[in-house]
Simulated scan of single mutants.
Amino acid sequence: MRDFSQNHDWLSINTATIRKQSGAEVPLDRIIDQCAERGIRAISPWRDQVAAVGLDKVAKQLKAHGIGLSGYCRGGFFPAADAAGLQAALDDNRRAIDEARTLDAPCLVLVVGALPGALEGKAAYKDIARARGEVRDGIAASLEYAREVGMPLAIEPLHPMQAADRACINTLEHALDICDELDAGKSGMLGVALDIYHVWWDPKLQQQIARAGRERLLAYHVCDWLTPTRDLLSDRGMMGDGVVELKKIRGWVEDAGFAGFSEVEIFSNLDWWQRPGSETLDVCIERHKRAV
């Protein structure tokens, strides 16, 4: 296993981690500057943050700082109530793929979606099998274009608590089943984004990480699971503050062939989003060396 204790060369910051600083929203260009000031070599930005600053401006700023991407957040949300909605989702994913290419991302992360309308409390239907079928078909259609332009897609399985509203793919095994169906040759164009927050509990995790192998492990996200958890969406812990065996899991991931960035992704409305970004980034660097 790689030794992270001497530097933070393999640390990436998912920009959600510091999109709020001292309780206020901070623009992406400022976040990029903060990362550059600390010698952080990679980030994973969100589409809305990129759009607010401007795609071309962000691309130029990243190049000027010598900062790469560990992923691009996010595509997905394929299910819809009708044919027009399904097509709109495919069109939006095509745009996301193009944005990821412009930023030279190694992959586009897919949060696949679930029951349409559930996030707003008004699910259009309750048939989760239908949603999973629409997800499968949406990934298949998006993969065709992704292959044309050379942008890998990374399915992110989300914790079962989010099966109704954000993602109806909830285990690494399920994500890999879809990968094997749609990309049997392991072309490198379809894989997974493994987010510790969502999968650490899975009794099949070690087995499925080994199954994924280098070809399918396209992104690796880290944080920690706090006990008690005060909010299931926005109370992620800093690495080392919770109950996840982070070093053990990274060992499994690296044994499977992954040699990329450990991407810190922390949603923390009650804690880290209330702190200055400088403090959060400095702690990320320290914990990446010690706890990841």
Rank of each mutant, 00 (worst) to 15 (best):
T102A: 14
Q21R: 08
L108T: 12
F78Q: 01
A52H: 12
A52V: 02
P27V: 12
C73I: 05
A81D: 07
L69E: 10
R41L: 07
N14W: 07
D33T: 13
I67H: 01
I43Y: 07
R94A: 03
I67G: 02
A52E: 15
V50C: 00
A64M: 02
N14Y: 09
A83E: 15
D98R: 13
G76K: 13
S70C: 04
T15D: 06
S22R: 15
E25K: 14
R38N: 04
T15F: 04
I97A: 03
T15L: 09
T17H: 11
K57R: 14
A16P: 01
I40K: 01
R19M: 15
I32F: 01
I31A: 08
D48V: 06
G85E: 03
L103F: 04
A59Q: 12
L103T: 09
G71H: 05
I31P: 06
A51F: 02
H65C: 13
S22C: 14
L55N: 03
I43V: 08
L108R: 06
V50F: 00
A24W: 01
S12N: 03
V109C: 12
A96M: 11
Q21C: 05
G76S: 10
S70K: 00
L90G: 00
D98A: 10
P27A: 09
Q49L: 10
A64G: 10
D56R: 06
A24E: 10
A24L: 04
R74E: 15
D104Q: 15
R47S: 09
A96E: 07
Q61V: 09
A88S: 02
G85Q: 00
S22Y: 12
L110K: 04
C73L: 09
D33V: 12
D33P: 04
D92R: 05
G66I: 11
V58T: 02
C35E: 04
R47C: 03
I97D: 04
D82P: 01
I67W: 05
S44K: 06
R30Y: 06
L62M: 06
R41N: 03
R101W: 02
R41A: 11
E99S: 07
A105V: 08
L28D: 14
R74A: 14
A24C: 06
L62V: 00
V58D: 00
V109E: 12
W46M: 13
Q21E: 13
L86T: 00
W46S: 14
